[in-house]
Amino acid sequence: MSDMIEYTIKRLFTGIFVIFAVTALLFAIMQLMPGDAIQLIANPRVSPERIEELREAWGLNKPAYVQYFYWLSHVLKGDLGTSISTGQQVSVLIKARFPYTMLLTGLSLILQYIIAVPLGLITASNKNTRADGIMVVLTIILWSMPPFWLGILLMLVFGIWLKVLPISGYSGLSSLILPLMTMTLPSLASVFRLARSEVLEVLREKYVLTAYAKGLNRKRVLTFHVLRNALIPVTVMFFLSLPWLIGGSVIVESVFAWPGMGGLLWKAISNQDYPVVQGIIFIIAILTVISNILGDILSAFLDPRIRLEIKGDNL
C-alpha cells in the first residue's frame, strides 16, 4: 500500500510539472500573435498615450516571461486575472460556467460507459453474428459524423419537427437532452470499439480456457475473468477521455448555446481575451492532469502487474 502512496505522490509531482509546461507553452504561443488585446478593443480615436497607459496597467509591456510569472503568482493565490472585454474577474466567470460544463461532460462520460461497455462485452462474445456486424458498421458511421452536424440534426428532428425538446440555452433538464446526446453518441462509438476489441483480445487468452476448464459457466467467465481484465484499459480511457470531451464541449456548447466553459472559451478566443483563454486552458490542463493521474492510479489498483512494476521502479 505504501508503494501506491509513493507512486501517487510521484505522479502528482510530474502532473504539476506538466501543468506548468502546458501553460508556459500556451503563453509562448500567445506571445507570437500579431497585435495585442489593447489594440483590438481600443477605438482608433484613443490616443497612443492612452494605449500605452492601458498596456502598463495590464502588464502587457513587460517581457513575456515576466508576464508569465506575474500571471502564475496570481494564479497560485486563486486570482486568474480580469477579463479584458467585460472587466469581470476570470475566476468568477469560470465559476459560473464550470458546473454546466461538468454536468454535461460528466453525465456524458457516465452514459457512454454504462452503455458501451456491456454492449462491447455482449457483441464481442457473440462475434461474427449479425448484431455484432451491425454494431461495428454503426459505430464507424457515428464516428464519421461531425458532432456539430449531429447536433443540428437532433435539433431539427426533436426541436423543430417534433417540437418536443428545447434547442438552445438552459431552461431546465429538458435542455440537457440534446447537447448530451450530441456529446455522447460519437464518443460512445469509440468506447464501444475499445471495449469490444479489448474483450476480443482477452477472449483469446489462455486463462479464459482455464476458467472454462475449471467448470465455470459462461456468465461467470465473461463477467469475472473477461470483463475484469478488459476493464483495465477501458478504465484508463475513461479518465483520459474527460479532457477530450471538454474540448469537444466547445462545439456542442456553441451549437446549443449551452452556458458552459466551452462557449465561454470560444467567445474569449474570438475577442482575443487573453486572461479568460488562459484561465480556461489552465483549468482544463489541471483537469487533464488530474484525470491522467486518477487513470494511472486506478489502473495500478486494477492490475497487480502494474503494481509490481511500480514497486520495482526506482525512478
Partner: peptide, 21 residues
C-alpha cells in the same frame, strides 16, 4: 509527445488558429 497528448487537441488547435489568425 506526452505534453502534446496531454491537452485536448481541439482546444489547442483553436488557440493556435486564433493566435495565427
Amino acid at each position: 509527445t506526452d505534453l502534446t497528448w496531454a491537452m485536448p487537441p481541439l482546444i489547442m488547435a483553436l488557440a493556435i488558429v486564433t493566435m495565427l489568425g
